[in-house]
């Protein structure tokens, strides 16, 4: 169509919008940058603050989860597809790393693309038949994936180590950096976390992210406007799988021993919980979610049963009061405080 031919049409103005806007609060560029910058500085500088081995170890655990959560944030936060199968995809990365190290003498770095691609491939295989059904059904299928994965591992004989699991040697020294030192392993994990957050942001702000959001917002309309919804859903699932695979690889080199229980249904639910608590559409949402679940019981010294109750209550509160997660809640809090200050 050629609008160049049009004279401007004299249309009366459309009606003004009612009420306030829905969605992310409006912050200035500076305000948006300062918290992430501070967090990233803290992330990188943590070893130099002498946090102690216990904290550092828990920080690595948090980092591992954050990597996987960034992938889930792309799938759920952007495309609107919930999966409770991400622990299984982490397991694919972890077991791939362990088996490749054992059978093909592959190092961490060589195994890295393999873990990511293999996890993405598994996600693709699972997604192909199952993403065409509605969201609720898909969640159940991903839940079943974890159960299936655990069974396959437990009955995999010597190849998967069966129920006992697999061992792996540490990363060792690369380019003069000794990764057997916890501080260095932490920095490696932190680097991956930063890369994951960066990639996630890249997707969020790109036109691809907008396409995923259109699928989330109104799938029917998206298809009617030319979006290949089926393909994009599978690709989004595969991308999130790749993140999980990398997280699993970092995890296996951290724990140095893995077994099927680590990747069952329960851990998967925890991962979904983390992304919802933290805020699936916020830049620091994944990190916040992992942080809360790792450190809340630590700081409050919670019995695991009490911790689970706390998470359940927290989840309900988030769903009812803070749909954007804790990060969105903090941002709103800041905005209201800023308005108060401006007014006074």
């Amino acid at each position: 169509m050629d609008l160049a031919k049009t004279e401007s049409l004299d249309l009366p103005q459309a009606e003004p919008a009612k009420g306030g806007s829905v969605g992310a609060p409006r912050l200035t560029w500076m305000e948006r940058a300062i918290v992430p910058a501070g967090v990233f500085l803290l992330l990188i500088g943590l070893p130099w603050l002498h946090p102690g081995y216990r904290l550092l170890s828990l920080a690595v655990s948090t980092g591992v989860n954050t990597i996987a959560l960034c992938g889930l944030a792309i799938l759920f936060g952007q495309a609107g597809i919930m999966s409770v199968g991400h622990a299984a995809l982490m397991g694919v990365g972890a077991y791939a790393g362990a088996i490749l190290a054992r059978d093909l003498d592959m190092s961490f770095w060589a195994a890295l693309p393999c873990a990511a691609l293999l996890a993405a491939a598994v996600a693709g295989l699972v997604g192909l038949p199952s993403l065409r059904v509605g969201g609720h059904h898909f969640v159940i299928i991903t839940f079943a994936l974890c159960g299936l994965f655990t069974i396959v591992l437990t009955n995999g004989g010597a190849f998967t180590g069966a129920a006992t699991g697999l061992d792996i040697a540490p990363i060792g020294t690369v380019f003069g950096v000794n990764f057997s030192k916890l501080q260095n392993l932490y920095l490696l994990a932190a680097a991956f976390v930063l890369a994951s957050i960066g990639l996630m942001r890249l997707v969020m702000t790109s036109s691809y992210g907008r396409t995923l959001r259109s699928i989330r917002e109104n799938e029917t309309l998206a298809a009617a406007l030319g979006v290949n919804v089926g393909l994009h859903k599978i690709v989004a699932f595969m991308i999130s799988g790749a993140f999980a695979g990398v997280a699993g690889l970092v995890q296996v080199y951290f724990l140095q021993h893995i077994s099927p229980d680590l990747y069952g249904a329960f851990p998967s639910v925890y991962i979904a919980l983390m992304v919802m608590l933290g805020g699936p559409r916020m830049l620091l949402g994944p990190l916040m979610g992992a942080f809360i679940v790792t450190f809340l019981p630590e700081v409050l010294n919670l019995d695991p049963i009490d911790a689970r109750i706390a998470y359940g209550v927290g989840l309900i509160l988030v769903i009812l009061l803070l749909p954007g997660g804790v990060m969105a809640g903090l941002a709103h809090l800041y905005l209201s405080c800023r308005r108060c200050v401006v007014r006074s």
Binding site: S57, L58, L262, T294
Partner: peptide
């Protein structure tokens, strides 16, 4: 009964 806490405690 959490492997991450066990590792952290071991490290500590």
């Amino acid at each position: 009964t959490d492997v991450n806490v066990a590792i952290a405690a071991g490290r500590e």
